[in-house]
């Protein structure tokens, strides 16, 4: 399969005011003062002007992914994907980014002591990069559905090196196969992605039950975000709504 380049509309990746407030741990019951709303407005405007969201995907075979996943043999012995690989029947590598310009602006703002705007733009770009990955996953889902390759009861979920026992060094083989430099994402020797606001990983298609991931793996104790569980619950809720 050939890699697919996806140009994504920046507005689709723009974090909402509500999600940015929640991201700052400001409870719904609190009405922040006007300067915080202005800060969010400024950060969203900057993001709209500077972000260049795009992603790259390639579908590969199970065996190829299984080999790629082994990577440099640093994964946790109980890595989640070890269990999921036999259950999945589609493996799409992806890399997505909010682009370099917005990352450069965050650094510039921090260096200029513009901490409130730098921090809010950072939060906006982080959410933006996640939304690019989410939209990419949705694009893959639509493609599979349009090609009658998404059976009833099947769903998609994505995983990234650095999480769920998949060692960060897994980035190396992922990048070798996907070549995200085509959309300007580079990998450093220590597996850092540049631009910073980038996400990479694999999108798996499997029966939704396969994604009912329990969260008592040894490495889960060190993880607070539990986004794997959150995404699973979102999938279940979507399926329920579509019934």
């Amino acid at each position: 399969m050939k890699p697919q380049l996806h140009e994504i509309d920046v507005d689709q990746t723009l974090a909402t005011t509500a999600s940015l407030l929640a991201g700052q741990s400001i409870p719904d019951s609190v009405t922040p003062d006007d300067r915080i709303y202005q800060l969010i407005k400024d950060a969203r405007k900057l993001y709209s002007d500077l972000a260049e969201p795009k992603s790259l995907t390639i579908e590969i075979e199970r065996d190829q992914f299984a080999e790629l996943f082994i990577g440099e043999r640093n994964n946790h012995p109980d890595a989640l994907l070890t269990e999921l690989i036999p259950l999945a029947d589609s493996f799409t590598l992806f890399a997505s980014t909010a682009g370099q310009k917005v990352c450069t602006e965050i650094e510039r703002l921090f260096a200029s002591n513009e901490f409130p705007l730098a921090s809010m733009l950072d939060a906006t770009a982080s959410e933006g990069a996640d939304l690019v990955a989410e939209i990419t996953q949705e694009m893959i889902r639509k493609q599979l559905k349009n090609n009658d390759q998404l059976d009833a009861g099947q769903e998609l979920l994505r995983f990234s090196p650095g999480y769920c026992g998949w060692h960060i060094s897994g980035q190396h083989k992922l990048f070798d196969t996907l070549q995200p430099s085509l959309i300007g994402i580079e990998l450093s020797e220590s597996y850092l992605m540049s631009p910073l606001k980038s996400v990479s990983g694999v999108i798996l298609k499997a029966p939704i039950e396969a994604f009912d991931i329990y969260d008592n793996f040894p490495y889960c104790a060190d993880c607070r975000n539990r986004s794997c569980r959150d995404r699973y619950h979102t999938l279940v809720a979507k399926m329920e709504n579509n019934k």
Binding site: Q24, S25, I26, V30, P32, R35, I36, L39, N113, E114, F115, P116, S119, M120
Partner: peptide
């Protein structure tokens, strides 16, 4: 929790000034 991260950072910016 009387103030939030953006408030803290407005003060930090003022501190540096």
């Amino acid at each position: 929790h009387e103030i939030f991260l953006p408030d803290l950072l407005f003060s930090a910016k003022a501190f540096y000034a």
